[in-house]
Design a protein around this nucleic acid. Structure first.
Lengths: 348, 348
DNA sequence: ATGAAAGCGCTAACAC
DNA sequence: GTGTTAGCGCTTTCAT
C-alpha cells in the first residue's frame, strides 16, 4: 500500500485527480480504470493491482458528479430543506441515524434562498437534483404538492398542504394542539390567545382547529381578538405577539398557545421585555419540541412532535418505495405534551 | 405565464425534463436555450420569450450535476460531516444563517459511513465533491490534515489535528476545560474524574490538559485511576463510565468532567441506573453545550462552544478565501461555562 | 442571432 | 483482458 495520505505532485495543473490521470500513470485506458474501481469482471489481477496502486498513490476518488451523470443510480438520498433551522435539523438527525447501514449516503440541500417565505423552492431543488444527483428525496415541509413526476420517489415530511399526492409522514397536529390548550384550561385559564402560523399552511390550520376544539369543549367561546397570524418565524411573530400582550383595549390574555416553538420563544422574549413574568402573569405553550425549547427561561411547555422518529420513518418509507416494497401512503405519528415551566395556574 | 405547477405530458419517457426537451418544443437548439436560461447576450427577445415560456410550461430546471461538470464554478458551498449529530447540526444552523444573502447555496454531505470511527471520510468526500459539485468546503471536525490540493478552499471547524495546514475555526478547549474543573473545585470537589475523548484527537488532549491545569492549580494531584478514555460517543463511553462510577477499589469520584456533552449525558444515564443522585451524590460537567444538554434531568452544566457563531465565522472565512480577501489562517473563539443543575457542592 | 460541435469525468456496450 | 466509442446534460467557442 502506498502513502494515500500524501498529495502527489504528479500533474502539472492543479486541481482534482481524474480517472484519466490514473489511466495515464498506470498505462491503461480509462475504461480499465473504471472497471477496476467498480469491481467489474474482466480485468487481470496484475493490472487491477497496479491500477489500485496508482489510485492510492494519487489519492484518486471518482467524482460523484460525473458518475451520477452517467449512471442511473447514485446511492445518494437527498434531504431538501428551505434552510437549516432547528426543525429541519432535528429531522436530519433522525434521518441520519436511520441511514446508517443501508448503504446510502445523505445529501442535504438548502435551496430556499432567504428563509421560508419563498415558495416553490422544493420544486426547484428537486428538479435540479432529481435523476442526476439523488435517487430519492425527503422534502421537509413542502408548501406545494409534489408529484413524483420528477422521476424519483419522494417522501414529504409535515407537508404544508396536507397528505395528498405524495407519500407523507406527519404528526397529529389537531390532537396535539387540543391537548396543549386543554392543559391551559385545566390550569384555570380562560383568556387563551392563539398566535397562529400561516393561514395557507395545513399544519397551521389544524393547530388552530385543535385550539378551537379545546375551547369549545370547555365551553369557552373563541374571542377573535385573541387570535393572530404569526407566520411561524420570530420576525413575523413579533408584531402580532406585541398586539396580543399589550392590547389597546380589553383584557390581556393569561395564556398564549403559539403555533410553533420559534414563535413561542419569541413570545417569551416579548413578555420579558414588557415585564411580564412567566408563568405567574402569563403562560406560554409552543409546538414542535425543538431542543431550543428546553433552553429558554423558563423552559417552554410544548407539544412534542417525535422529530427523530419522523425522520427515521420517512427514510424507511423512502427506501421501501425505492425498492418497490408496498407501503401505506401516509404515516401519522402521535404528539405528546411536554410540560415544563412556562405554564402555571391562571392569575387570580 | 403558463401553469408552472403542472406536470407536462410532453415526453414519452418519464423522468426529468432536460434542456433538449425544451429545445425541441421551442424549436431552437440547446445552445440557444442555454443562453436564454443563463441570460447571455445574442438572443432575439422574441426567441428568448418563447423559450422562457416553454421552460415555464415544462417546469424545466437545469441539472446541477450537468452544469457543475461543465462549468468551473457552481455557487454551492459544501459542508462535509461524518454524520448529522447534535454538534455538526448546530454548526450547520450557524452556517445556514450566514449564507443567506450571499448568493451561495448550501450542500451538506455526510459521507462518514457508520459513525465517527472511520477515518479518512473527509478526504474521500472532498475528493468526490471538490471541483465538480462545490466551489469550497467547510469540513467539520476532520481527523486528518487537509491540504487545499483538491483545488478548492477549505475551512476546518474544530479540527482534531490542531490548527495546521488549512484555515481553521475552533474554540479555546484548554481554557474551557480548566474553567469547568475550577468550577467543580470551587464547589468543594477533590475527587474529580475525567472521562476523556479519543487520545489521538487534539481537542480531547487539550481538554484533558485543562483538567490537569485546574487540578494542579488547586494543588490536587491527578489520580490516574480517575482518568479514562471515553471516545466522545455514548457507546464508547459506556464501559469507562461504569468503571469510574462503580470502582472496584478506592473511592468513587464526587464529580466527573466529561470531554463532551454526549459522553456527559451518558454518564448521567449510568449514574441514574446505579442509583446515584445528581448532583447530590455526583456532579457532572460536559463540553460543547449542544441543545440536548439542557433537556437532560437534571440539565447539564457544560462548557459552551459558540457553535452558531463558529459556523457563521467559518462561512465568512471561506467566502473571503474564495474571493481572495486576505484572512488570518486561524480563528479561536472563547468558550463560556454554563452552570445548570448537574453540579452542586461536594458531598460531605 | 442562431446552431454545430467539442468536451467536462465517467460508465457501459461493444469491438478487438 | 483490454481499448475504442458513445453519450449522460450542460456550457462554450466558433462558424454560419
Amino acid at each position: 500500500m502506498s502513502t494515500a495520505a500524501d498529495q502527489p505532485a504528479a500533474q502539472p495543473y492543479t486541481g482534482r485527480v481524474t480517472i484519466s490521470d490514473v489511466a495515464r500513470v498506470a498505462g491503461v485506458s480509462v475504461a480499465t480504470v473504471s472497471k477496476v474501481v467498480n469491481n467489474r469482471y474482466g480485468v487481470a489481477s496484475a493490472t487491477a493491482e497496479r491500477v489500485l496502486g496508482v489510485v492510492a498513490d494519487l489519492g484518486y476518488e471518482s467524482s460523484l458528479v460525473a458518475r451520477s451523470l452517467r449512471r442511473q443510480s447514485t446511492n445518494v438520498v437527498g434531504v431538501l430543506v428551505a434552510e437549516f433551522e432547528p426543525y429541519s435539523t432535528e429531522l436530519l438527525k433522525g434521518i441520519s441515524s436511520a441511514v446508517a447501514g443501508t448503504g446510502y449516503e445523505l445529501l442535504a440541500y438548502s435551496g430556499g434562498s432567504d428563509g421560508g417565505t419563498v415558495t416553490g423552492w422544493e420544486r426547484r431543488s428537486l428538479s435540479r437534483l432529481a435523476g442526476t444527483l439523488i435517487d430519492a428525496a425527503i422534502v421537509v415541509t413542502p408548501t406545494m404538492v409534489l408529484s413524483e413526476a420528477n422521476g424519483i420517489p419522494v417522501v414529504a415530511v409535515d407537508p404544508h398542504t396536507g397528505p395528498e399526492g405524495t407519500h407523507t409522514v406527519d404528526s397529529d397536529n389537531t390532537t396535539g394542539a387540543r391537548e396543549a390548550v386543554e392543559h391551559l384550561v385545566a390550569l384555570g385559564h380562560r383568556r387563551i390567545a392563539h398566535l397562529g402560523g400561516r393561514t395557507d399552511l395545513e399544519s397551521a390550520r389544524l393547530r388552530e382547529l385543535g385550539y378551537r376544539q379545546a375551547l369549545d369543549g370547555a365551553g369557552i367561546g373563541v374571542d377573535p381578538a385573541l387570535v393572530r397570524v404569526g407566520g411561524y418565524r420570530p420576525e413575523t411573530a413579533d408584531t402580532p405577539a406585541r398586539e396580543l400582550l399589550r392590547p389597546t383595549r380589553g383584557e390581556r390574555p393569561t395564556a398564549v398557545f403559539a403555533a410553533n416553538d420559534q414563535s413561542a420563544i419569541h413570545v417569551l422574549e416579548v413578555a420579558a421585555e414588557l415585564g411580564l413574568r412567566v408563568p405567574e402573569d402569563l403562560s406560554v405553550v409552543g409546538f414542535d419540541n425543538i431542543p431550543e425549547s428546553a433552553t429558554t427561561s423558563p423552559p417552554l411547555t410544548t407539544v412534542a412532535q417525535p422529530l427523530h422518529r419522523m425522520g427515521a420513518e420517512a427514510l424507511r418509507m423512502l427506501l421501501d418505495v425505492l425498492e418497490g416494497t408496498p407501503r401505506e401512503q401516509h404515516l401519522r405519528l402521535p404528539t405528546s405534551l411536554v410540560v415544563r415551566a412556562s405554564t402555571g395556574p391562571a392569575p387570580a
